[in-house]
Amino acid sequence: MTPRISFQNVSRRFELGGGGEFLALDRFSLEVGEGEFITVVGPSGCGKSTAMNIAAGLLRPTAGRVLVDGAAVEGPGPERGVIFQQYALFPWLTVRENVEFGLRVAGMPGKRRREIADRFIGLVGLTDFAEALPKTLSGGMKQRCAIARAYAVDPKILLMDEPFGALDALTRVTLQDQLLRTWSQERRTVMFITHDVDEAVYLGGRVIVMAARPGRLYKVIPVDLPYPRTEEMRLSTAFAALRNEVWRSVYHPEAA
């Protein structure tokens, strides 16, 4: 079976002012299977967003390529939903209009669009706020709206770049559980970037650890905890051991 996402020796250089160059991502290779939930952790600047943006089609690699279902990524596509840390809601649109955006772009008629939007708005618990503007929402509600907006176009793949990074601990845990619940119902392939080791272990079937300078894949740590993940698991010794392992790889990688 072909993997859903396949990073093949993907590198990305950035030109720096003054003629220099910076290798943000160095020969990154990774395969993500259909319906798999992987988390990506690593220190700031190790190329997590770079790798994800290349998969999203928002950034071109300078070498290598990314295949999605066997086809090279040439640009963004509706089968890949992206959720940004900064929410990126359109502030002039209401929650419902934001969620309808992708459907409207696809030319779906208003009535059908509204049905779908309302379903996903309900799924993320924002029904009472469907007519609200983003500025009136809390951070957690904004991110739920962004998730509904991404789900609405029914992507097979979700690329999430530190989506819960700006939220308080409690909201984050709630959204993590909500995300896992939806994922277990409709198995999408998820690539979830985080800088939070706990979050990486709690959500992921595999944790991809990256290292910086140059940004690269450092280690893949399988998480042998069954889904659904529970509060109990979070407090278990197996979880603690995994967290320690990931923590050590992130913060004390052996010299490459």
């Binding site: 999203a56 089609g57 928002l58 640009g75 963004p76 596509g77 509706p78 890949r80 939903g81 992206v82 940004f84 900064q86 990126a88 809601l89 359109f90 002039w92 955006f101 992708g102 772009v105 696809a106 907006r149 991404a150 176009v153």
Partner: peptide, 28 residues
């Protein structure tokens, strides 16, 4: 905001749509 343009692109919007639905309102 670049992120808004990217958000529109990943939702399937092409240049003309991005211009009409993102750039114009955002610069108002």
């Amino acid at each position: 905001d670049r992120t808004l343009i990217n958000a529109a692109r990943v939702l399937g919007a092409k240049d003309a749509t991005i211009f009409r639905r993102v750039v114009i309102p955002a610069s108002t």
